[in-house]
């Protein structure tokens, strides 16, 4: 099928970007979205032009590297899907597809569709861990964890940190990401002891990175490839308020 592409080209974070038009004549509908872009890039390289840069790694929907705005929606039209798991069968012959990078002040564009999401890493570094003593690994079954608790923690841990929540949010808030990480650790006994310290420093870091606030529009969960629950955000707020009121 024939696909018209309008792709955001931007040399670096300083320069002004613009849409460039490309047309691919024989796109197979079983190609993944990224493979379609590979096809385009091969053409561009052969012509001596600079290929379109975009992030990708596993191409299995589990690493969280890929991510772009496809026709104005993070990861494209399919629900709960990463960009790499989107296939060209979701589009029709003759379609025009707009492709833009995720945009937020905390996600500066590196080049074209590739953005720097280190701000999310900084949030993790500020408290998204469990402090353990070095030495021999403890016996796994010495701390009993109820099945439901483990499952709930795992639901939050499913966040792959792709940044679609930030890109979909009208305030570019990272509340869903941060709260998922906080909940994941808080639900398990190993993480519980540091909850107050963790939530305060992660929320502080989230602010410092320049993310916006949460207004509970719930768009983030709808566009999240992992369907991470917005209730995590409420839990983060609860833990933050508790920590502020009780610890200070």
């Amino acid at each position: 099928m024939k696909i018209h592409l309008k792709i955001w080209r931007q040399k670096d974070s300083q320069s002004k970007g613009e849409f460039k038009d490309y047309t691919l004549d024989d796109v197979h509908q079983e190609l993944s979205f990224l493979e379609m872009l590979d096809t385009l890039n091969l053409k561009l390289v052969k012509k001596g032009e600079y290929p379109v840069e975009f992030d990708h790694d596993c191409r299995e929907g589990i690493c969280g590297q890929c991510g772009m705005m496809i026709n104005g929606i993070a990861h494209g039209p399919l629900k709960n899907t990463t960009t790499c798991q989107l296939h060209m069968r979701s589009f029709k012959d003759g379609d025009t597809i707009y492709i833009e990078p995720f945009k937020a002040a905390a996600f500066p564009v590196v080049r074209d569709l590739k953005v720097n999401r280190s701000s999310l890493d900084h949030i993790i570094t500020s408290g998204g861990y469990v402090s353990v003593d070095t030495g021999q690994a403890p016996e796994a079954n010495s701390i009993p964890i109820a099945h439901e608790e483990a499952e709930a923690a795992f639901d939050a841990a499913a966040c792959i940190g792709c940044g679609a929540c930030v890109a979909s949010c009208k305030n570019a808030s990272a509340a869903l990401f941060t709260s998922a990480k906080i909940t994941q650790l808080e639900l398990l006994p190993q993480g519980q002891t540091e909850t107050s310290k963790r939530v305060i420093s992660m929320v502080k870091q989230m602010e410092e990175e320049g993310f916006g606030h949460c207004t509970n529009t719930e768009a983030c969960q709808v566009e999240c490839p992992e369907d991470i629950s917005v209730l995590n955000i409420a839990r983060m707020n609860y833990e933050y308020n508790k920590a502020k009121i009780l610890n200070k």
């Binding site: 309008k6 955001w8 849409f19 705005m69 026709n71 104005g72 929606i73 993070a74 707009y98 833009e100 945009k103 937020a104 002040a105 905390a106 996600f107 979909s168 009208k170 305030n171 570019a172 808030s173 320049g210 993310f211 916006g212 606030h213 207004t215 509970n216 529009t217 719930e218 768009a219 983030c220 709808v222 566009e223």
Partner: peptide, 27 residues
Amino acid sequence: LTVKSKKAKGSGYVKDRRGRASKWYSR
């Protein structure tokens, strides 16, 4: 908070269909 949100958003999208995911009045 509105000023803060404006700063956090950056340049915004040319093609923006994010509205499908939330209620208009919440935005």
